[in-house]
Design a protein around this nucleic acid. Structure first.
Length: 420
RNA sequence: GUGGGUAUAGCUCAGUUGGUUAGAGCGCUAGGUUGUGGCCCUAGAGGCCAAGGGUUCGAAUCCCUUUAUUCACCCCA
């Protein structure tokens, strides 16, 4: 029986991995300019962290977690996202005594047990960041502005920022009552899911995609029109800040995030044409989460983006991501004696930071040069008895066909100094 | 959890109304007279035709079951 890769996972091979590395590098550099420091946290945590952090009523916790018992019988879960872990770490390491606010970014894999489709995997890569200890709308604006710059720097096209405010506990309680009132006599004409939502989370009635439901909910009151004074002021400041920073956005009253911890500002960067799963990046404010997880009342805001979705979007934009590195020089040889010299030169180049290829399978000259061609080597040099005896060899530029005779002793120096 | 598509070589795919040793292109390996690659030519390796069962003289092909995979719904990055 052949062993195959588990469902929803994939190998990232040479040719593909370079895209990940490139994006991760651009991301890390930019985030650090904005004052973020990297954090790493475990792939698995106590299940309770996600139950409390992400929320017991969410789909993620109810049906999508990779949960198992360890040998001591503790319930362990593979992280389905990063925010809960960062907040746990913030509390556990006493980061509230660091200069505030705390800005952290991360680069992780995450795990969700879901049915696979385009843009959705069971193991996927996320780039994320969190700002803890600021309830200022300036934090919201800074993050959105940074993300907007990040995507434009990468050359992403067709990605739009949708923002909304879903209020705080106070305005949401009031709003849920308004919604219940509005839907009370219309519920009979709505789908089964919506009947459940009516009881458990009325806010989600708004973003049901079923036609019969969306027709009804079209005229429902919107939370953004019913915010309390302080939430309203916060949102207005965010919008003003975006305008002042020339960050384009769309106010999308229907954005209601699926994680329990969000309050006030929520947002998504939505792509066109990459399949049904088109949210490349999403996030929002979570002012109650630190307290919920046992810390002192600390506001927070963060986001996560799906690297696989981002790469799809980039490729849709026609952007050519960096490919494998090509060797600077291929050193071919004929015979044992020449190999020993060639090997020393190759080693010298390699420890001096030059990507150099040499055959180790004792193959014919023709096979060696074919290999050099396939690897797109910039130069090649052939060493045989004659060359060793006369200390002269020919370096050839494989694309221009240019050749140059040089002394074997000088090859290393010439390549390193780029003087050929 | 629900519904649809697909499954033949490493990859992309042919394979007739069921009929002998299962095919192509690309890729891989080795050669094309002693030491310069790409183009071209030749040869080779590589398949339990996803698995199991059934129909039949005979199944890659028809039927059933299972598995994998993929797309979509729900929801999410």
């Amino acid at each position: 029986m052949k062993i195959s890769i588990p469902k929803g996972t994939k190998d990232i091979l040479p040719g593909e991995i370079e895209k990940y590395k490139y994006i991760q590098k651009v991301y890390a550099n930019l985030l650090e300019n904005f004052g973020f420091k990297q954090i790493r946290f475990p792939v698995f945590e106590h299940t309770e962290l996600f139950q409390r952090g992400v929320g017991d009523t969410t789909d993620i916790v109810q049906k999508e977690m990779y949960t198992f018992k360890d040998k001591a019988g503790r319930s362990i879960t593979l992280r389905p996202e990063g925010t809960a872990s960062v907040v746990r770490s913030y509390i556990e390491n006493g980061m509230s005594s660091y200069p505030q606010p705390i800005k952290l970014y991360y680069d992780i894999t995450a795990y969700r047990y879901e049915n696979v489709q385009k843009g959705r995997y069971r193991e996927f890569n996320q780039l994320g960041a969190e700002v803890l200890g600021s309830d200022s709308p300036n934090a919201d604006v800074e993050i959105l502005n940074m993300l907007n710059y990040f995507f434009s720097k990468l050359g992403v096209q067709g990605l739009k920022l949708h923002v909304n405010s879903i209020g705080c506990k106070v305005c949401r309680t009031k709003y849920n009552e308004m919604l219940k009132e509005f839907f009370a006599d219309k519920l009979d004409n709505m789908c089964e899911d919506c009947k459940q939502r009516y009881i458990k989370n009325p806010m989600r009635l708004i973003d049901c995609k079923q036609e019969k439901c969306s027709v009804i909910s079209k005229d429902a009151p919107m939370l953004i029109d019913n915010l309390c004074d302080s939430c309203k002021e916060h949102f207005e400041n965010v919008i003003r800040g975006l305008d002042e920073m020339n960050t384009p956005y769309i106010i999308n009253k229907r954005i209601v995030r699926g994680l329990d911890y969000y309050v006030r500002t929520v947002f998504e960067f939505i792509a066109e044409g990459i399949g049904a799963q088109d949210t490349v990046c999403a996030g929002g404010r979570y002012d109650g989460l630190v307290e919920e997880l046992g810390g002192t009342d600390t506001p927070g805001i963060g986001f996560a983006m799906g690297l696989e979705r981002l790469i799809s979007t980039l490729e849709k934009s026609g952007f050519v991501l960096p490919y494998e590195k090509n060797p600077v020089i291929f050193i071919a040889y004929i015979g044992e004696k020449a190999y020993k010299v060639a090997r020393k030169i190759a080693n010298e180049l390699r420890i001096n930071g030059i990507y150099c290829e040499i055959d180790i399978n004792d193959r014919s000259l023709k096979a060696q040069l074919k290999f050099a061609d396939k690897k797109n080597a910039l130069y090649n040099v052939v060493l045989g008895e004659n060359e060793i005896d006369t200390n002269k060899a020919i370096i050839k530029n494989m694309s221009t066909q240019e050749i140059k005779e040089v002394s074997i002793d000088s090859i290393t120096k010439r390549i390193i100094e780029n003087k050929i």
